[in-house]
Design a protein around this nucleic acid. Structure first.
Lengths: 203, 203
DNA sequence: GTCTATAAGAGGATAGAC
DNA sequence: GTCTATCCTCTTATAGAC
């Protein structure tokens, strides 16, 4: 019993290691550029062993996306727990976390293009459940922030939600970081400002 | 002489047809998902014939990007010619054109990730020349708009430039279009507003 | 320059021993 | 479950006839 449990833990932690590697590689190169050989080499096991844990490359990516969504949901929970924060405060906090995570190279890029991956994700219950939960939570904040007059009421909540999601794969962060002249914190501040305050000067 | 010229025109127009097809496919699926077989089939010639015109898949993509940058530079020229327009007006006009072009499926996506393509583009003189010219032109508008007090002076011009470039591959347009409930014009208006005015309500 | 046919190789997935 | 070795498909690129 103890031995079995121990073995299970070893296996579980190995799967965690796999998912972590996949998440990093997805953030680094995207789904197409990431090869299964590379994942296996990085984790330090044979490729065939990978396929004992995950049925396909798409399943591998889906597991990483589920993990990423789980982290986002944790952040939402953390923000819900902050007393006295407005909906706008919470929305900005989660957006900031998203930018920081992307800049740290730990945010797998969303695949708007690839159909094989898209279909796999749509068919993945855990992924879709988390995505919908996250969208519902953020959607509620957005509606509330609009009621508060903090978010532009002319924008449909949908558009605001997509805009926040899109920041998770905004190439501006990478462009500014590539220059090497600014700190991560400075970059995040600028993107936060352009996202919420806009490029145009405020009176 | 006449016959030679005619043949040259036929060849040139064939190359134009190739480049147009590549530009459309790049916008549709991205560099990785686009196959050379597909390009050849779409143009209606054999794949080997494609390689008589362009040395590699990267060269094919580079030609399409050069064409796209050329169209953008044409837009810049057109805006320069508008009398009485402020730098901010011009910046918004070119941004709007970028969004409309992407929504029309005619804007090849910039490849921040793929290294093979990146290197090919960086090594491509025509591409780099156009990119730098465009950046210089837009950069001048941005600096002027900041001097006018129209663009937020706290943002470095670089960040504003990258933000405008990033709109060319903003997934928000596709998300909103996928819903099918809004007109292209409406979608462009919302993204323009969130880009320049920000998500936060203006007083 | 255009075609058909094919080389060359990358990458996802599996067989079978242990 | 892990390994080595292999299969097989897809895709880039070229050979060689016309």
């Amino acid at each position: 019993m103890t031995r079995l449990s121990f073995r299970q833990k070893v296996l579980a932690s190995r799967e965690e290691a796999i998912v972590s590697t996949v998440m990093r590689l997805l953030a680094e190169k995207g789904f197409d550029q990431m090869t299964v050989d590379e994942v296996a080499a990085d984790v330090g096991i044979a490729k065939a062993s990978l396929y004992k844990h995950f049925a396909s490359k798409e399943a591998l990516a889906a597991a990483a996306m589920v993990q990423a969504l789980g982290l986002a949901l944790d952040q939402v929970q953390a923000q819900q727990a902050v007393a006295g924060a407005s909906a706008m405060d919470r929305l900005q906090a989660i957006t900031r976390w998203t930018l920081q995570t992307q800049l740290a190279g730990a945010m797998p890029t969303l695949p708007a293009e690839n159909s094989a991956l898209r279909n796999a994700l749509i068919a993945h219950r855990g992924y879709m459940d988390r995505l919908m939960t996250l969208s519902d939570d953020l959607g509620a904040w957005i509606v509330q922030a609009q009621a508060d007059g903090a978010i532009d009421r002319n924008l449909p909540p949908e558009a605001v939600l997509f805009t926040v999601y899109a920041r998770a794969c905004d190439p501006v962060l990478g462009f500014l970081k590539a220059g090497g002249r600014y700190s991560d914190e400075q970059i995040v501040d600028w993107v936060m400002s352009s996202c919420f305050n806009g490029l145009a000067a405020r009176p």
